[in-house]
Nucleic acid binder design. Structure first.
Lengths: 144, 144
DNA sequence: CTTCCTGCAAAGCATTTGCATCCAT
DNA sequence: ATGGATGCAAATGCTTTGCAGGAAG
């Protein structure tokens, strides 16, 4: 049986990214929790452990993972810190809770038709699209 | 007949924003061209004219206009400079050209049904949504 | 007159980069 | 071996803030 760490290593290799201790640590941190995290948060958590990883390395790694399409970035607080989040490698959208900032992926996307029509109406040819739905999640609704 | 400048002044007043020379200048600059602009670009253009407006004032003004819902912000280059753009005050979405970065508003949005269904599927109650379609505009397609 | 606005310079903060060293392949 | 990865510190660049003087109601 493959360990989680081996899975992550393979994930990197599959994307032509050299496997290093730091990269696995960052990836593990991203995989650990469903919520998103800033570069500085991830760095903080690594330092709490025995890791000596530098902040610059965390940024470099996140950039790499982003280019490979393994993480999404969301900017909750416009202009502030960027949030990173491990994501599925297929087309999907985001559902963000206004209160707790939890992010959930919406997988089934059947908007291609609508998107193409809207684009065409303005002379565009659509190549991609991105939807972000904001609202209140079940937990937050219940707890108030 | 009302001048453009008077229209802009009324726009500010209607939103409870004090009318000042600088604010009108920034608003005029935003209104002048359909493409979006960064704070620094706007500042540069004002300085090319006779204005002595400070960069800080441009930022303060844009923040004000944003809070009032008069401008949208887009961040093309994640983490880089923020782009501002005068927008209609009603619900709409964006169509962004990958090549020239032109932004067009998509007004008719009939996605509420889809959005609510997607949110409900994950236990959310949707309060808002935001769609960004990327593609290639007619001009860019023609010129290549 | 009083409150808010503005310009300037300085501060703040997230992110990037230079470089010597170290590690993966 | 050798090219890429890393830690650290310094640099960068966007944005915000403090403050004294100026404009709007």
């Amino acid at each position: 049986m493959a360990t989680a760490s081996q899975d992550l290593a393979e994930l990197l290799q599959r994307h032509g990214i050299r496997v290093t201790t730091n990269r696995l640590l960052v990836l593990q941190e991203l995989a650990r929790e469903p919520d998103d995290a800033t570069a500085q948060e991830i760095w903080g958590r690594l330092r709490e452990g025995r890791a000596t990883t530098g902040l610059a390395t965390v940024y470099r790694t996140l950039g790499l993972l982003y280019d490979a399409g393994l993480v999404d970035t969301l900017s909750h607080h416009a202009g502030g810190e960027q949030c990173y989040r491990l994501c599925s490698e297929t087309h999907h959208h985001h559902l963000v809770c206004d209160r707790c900032h939890r992010v959930v992926e919406v997988d089934r996307c059947d908007l291609e038709g609508w998107v193409n029509k809207a684009a065409k109406r303005h002379g565009f040819i659509a190549t991609d699209h991105r939807v972000e739905i904001t609202g209140v999640c079940a937990d937050c609704r219940r707890s108030h």
